[in-house]
Design a protein around this nucleic acid. Sequence first.
DNA 1: CCTATAGTTAGCGTCATGGCTAACAATGTA
DNA 2: TACATTGTTAGCCATGACGCTAACTATAGG
Lengths: 128, 128
Amino acid sequence: MANNVIQLDRIFAALADPTRRAIVMRLCDGEASVGELADPFDMALPSFMKHIHVLEMSGLVQSEKAGRVRTCRLRPEAMVGAEDWLQHQRAIWEARLDRFEAYVMKLKKEKTERPAPKRPSAPKKGKA
Amino acid sequence: MANNVIQLDRIFAALADPTRRAIVMRLCDGEASVGELADPFDMALPSFMKHIHVLEMSGLVQSEKAGRVRTCRLRPEAMVGAEDWLQHQRAIWEARLDRFEAYVMKLKKEKTERPAPKRPSAPKKGKA
DNA sequence: CCTATAGTTAGCGTCATGGCTAACAATGTA
DNA sequence: TACATTGTTAGCCATGACGCTAACTATAGG
């Protein structure tokens, strides 16, 4: 319970940094060594490693060392927690909103369908 | 561009705090004054006001003052940015996962004896 | 006018974050 | 064995986050 909350804290905090979001994006393309990940960034390695560490603490990233190379990969399950929280809030909001206002609906129409996740637990927000 | 990124920073950072998430949840139920919002929290008002301010800077919350009462309401459009980012990453991940599975299928077809890893890893790291 | 209510401003302490350098493993490779 | 690569540890600094109290402003109500 409280554990979950803390994990949400960590996930959102991890994603609040552009360097770390970039790392996550990069890892969506496949696993990579620390060196490969660090390459695009103009940052000393120890600083960079701290970001990796924050991502690992959040559960978003997992890494293991083979020889002298540490390989990192994404753990997208972790992201689901944050995603669900957001979707849940919006669901509540929209339910409430339906009683008297419609402008967010218009907003969402402008957004026109982001792709429906095929993730099992996705509530699918069936566009009520 | 960079502006969006900064806004993402702020939104995720705002959501990284349990007090602020609780405020957002509360506001999903409808607008409320600062005092009403602060009531459940064992926190001095000035501290609490900082949270409100962070939420406003992130765009998640909007407030206006009438008389001596400041009323806050949610601006869920702001949340959509974060939600989209997460969904987008997961979409990329899943697309990659599909490619990977296809790759493994191919591998298995070519070398019938090779076992498929249960966990996705990069089919090929660019940067040979 | 006087007082209670509702926020606000100012200022402080402490800890976390994000960056750095320098020096140290540990592992491949010639 | 010696050298280069790849991370890692330790320690420093500046800034920001998050909490507090005290004192202040501005309305609402009696």
